[in-house]
Design a protein around this nucleic acid. Structure first.
Lengths: 186, 186
DNA sequence: CTGCGACATTTCAGATGTGACATGTTGAAG
DNA sequence: CTTCAACATGTCACATCTGAAATGTCGCAG
């Protein structure tokens, strides 16, 4: 009753933007770079998507242009309605649990490859994961995580990434062991 | 040079279908249920998407109708071209690494909630993950994983799920600890 | 012989995402 | 005073995904 049914759409880019704007007003250009540094790790978005969504958001009254600067720069801030919508999304909308995973989909079909190809596939995944892990470590070391809510919670998300990559490395090792012939003479 | 540039499109549902058909011929209806039991965990797809893709795949010559049965049932099998495309996808196309994660996106904005709300959010995620983990365990126990390539590799994908859910539970505990006030009197 | 659940496919509107291209401004280095 | 990188936004075609609805058949329990 109290929740409008028609409003229960997902659209997380929208809420990512609202979330960033809840921190501080910003232009599309600002948001784009912030996005790339933070949220893109969990929710990638292209430039065209971002600008498009900003216009839609303004149209829907969830954000508002506060000033128009040089080079057509438009600075946006969150409206009260936008803050409410963000809160609603945070507490009332269940996250989508199934995340598409390209890499894992291929695993189902590893039997179509030679053992050598399959091993190469897993080894490559292991290597890529390790590189990504190193990037995350660099972010961990390069930041002050005590300042402000956004950073503090960014740290929690980062921790997830660190544990995820660690898990994936261990899984890759397990899989490589499993793919190996039982008693190899090599 | 040797790789046609225009062909490097992603489209993993397409390859999921090709992969299932590489195992045995099937109708759209068959594939739908197989999908739900296996691949949907890593690559969800709706019924309309599946049937649509089957027609496109047949049109592109990657699969072929072998027989038309009762109730308009069309049984498809993989063509040589389909097998080649599947192989190409497995060995030549790098998986997309960034997976959208709704749940983690919210974590960045946990600072907008009260501590109580934030804790409830993580606790709920923990509980949902645990339930999913139990489902995966049931699948592990309920199957014979020694028969055939598809099962064997399905087991490797399942292992990923088991480790993923374990990781997420531990992460949730870590996050809950971090969200707790330093010296709570409760 | 009737109803109904499982089988089986198609279509469609609308949301969302991708990648490329188009367009223009501003400030600072040289 | 020129030029160039960074700033800044917009648009388009196309691919993909979502959810619902429409349509009909077959076999079997009652």
């Amino acid at each position: 009753m109290s929740i409008m049914e028609g409003t229960l759409i997902r659209m997380s880019l929208r809420h990512g933007i609202l979330g960033l704007l809840s921190n501080r007003p910003a232009s599309g250009y600002d948001l784009l770079s912030t996005f790339q540094e933070t949220l893109a790790n969990v929710w990638p978005a292209t430039q065209s998507q971002l600008y498009g969504e900003l216009n839609r958001l303004a149209n829907d009254g969830l954000i508002r242009v506060t000033s128009t600067g040089a080079r057509g720069r438009k600075e946006y801030e969150l409206t009260d309605a936008g803050g409410d919508e963000l809160h609603r999304w945070l507490v009332d909308v269940e996250p989508k649990r199934v995340n598409r995973n390209d890499m894992l989909l291929r695993v189902f079909f590893l039997g179509l490859l030679t053992r050598k190809e399959a091993v190469a596939y897993i080894e490559n995944e292991r290597a890529v994961t390790e590189r990504y892990r190193a990037e995350l470590k660099a972010i961990e070391d390069g930041n002050d995580w005590s300042q402000g809510d956004f950073a503090a919670n960014g740290r929690i998300a980062l921790e997830w990434g660190l544990r995820y990559t660690e898990m994936q490395r261990e899984w890759a090792d397990w899989a490589l062991d499993r793919l190996a012939p039982k008693r190899s003479k090599d």
